[in-house]
Simulated scan of single mutants.
Amino acid sequence: MNQADLKEFFLKDRFAAHVGIELLDMAPGRAKAKLEIKDHHRNAVGVVHGAAIFSLADLVFAVASNSHGTVALGINVAISYMTSARDGTLLAEAEEVSINPKLATYLIRILDDDRNLIALFQGTVYRKGETLP
């Protein structure tokens, strides 16, 4: 699967689209996406909801881990929130840390407009050995 087909495949992610996540870039083992913060992304205390940040990180995790054309499904993730965000745009950048025929690990950084670190997300996938549909 070439990069254009892969991008088209992930544009079908209805949840990411509903949340407002925009896929910006991808390459083998890497992906970038952004989320423009809107009022509905805020929790009761006025900061961006952790689930919105997690969803942004999860999309680039999925794109980077499936970027080789092999079905990869998350088996473990962890996120650490460093500071809160209120306004502007969040950027998620995924990078492949380790890959073998069955498992791969990714590190995702979520940054604000000033490139301050908002959260770190680490995820591991199981690589099924099947090609993406």
Rank of each mutant, 00 (worst) to 15 (best):
E22Y: 11
V125P: 00
N2Y: 07
G69N: 03
T131M: 15
V71D: 01
I79H: 05
V63C: 00
A52P: 01
I21M: 08
V71L: 09
D113W: 11
Y106Q: 02
M26Y: 14
V60Y: 04
E96P: 08
L59H: 00
A92S: 04
E96G: 07
F10W: 11
K38Q: 14
T124Y: 10
V48Y: 03
T124L: 08
R127F: 04
L132N: 02
L107M: 14
I99H: 12
Y106N: 01
S84P: 07
D13P: 00
K7Q: 11
G123P: 01
T131D: 15
S84R: 11
Y126F: 07
D25L: 08
A78P: 05
K32E: 15
A104M: 06
Q3L: 15
G29T: 03
K12A: 15
S65T: 04
K38Y: 13
I118W: 01
M82L: 13
S80W: 09
L103W: 13
G123V: 04
A17S: 12
D87M: 10
V48Q: 01
N66E: 02
S98V: 14
S98A: 10
R30M: 13
A85H: 03
K32L: 11
L107I: 09
V45H: 08
P101M: 13
L103S: 11
N66L: 10
I79E: 02
M1E: 03
G50M: 05
K34Y: 12
H68Y: 15
T124C: 10
S98L: 13
A57H: 04
L91H: 08
L107K: 11
S84D: 09
A4E: 10
K7T: 01
K34C: 15
S98D: 09
L35I: 03
L103R: 10
A4Y: 08
Q122V: 14
Y81T: 08
D39P: 08
A104Y: 05
T131K: 11
Q3V: 12
Q3H: 08
D5V: 11
V47Q: 03
A16Y: 03
R30K: 07
L117I: 07
A78M: 10
D112A: 12
A17W: 09
I99K: 14
M26P: 03
A92Y: 08
K7F: 09
D39M: 12
E8Y: 13
V97M: 08
A72D: 00
K102P: 07
R109E: 09
L11D: 12
H49W: 11
H68M: 08
R109M: 12
H40S: 14
K102S: 13
A44S: 14
P133N: 11
D112M: 06
K34N: 10
L23M: 00
K128H: 09
A57L: 06
V60I: 06
V71P: 02
K128P: 02
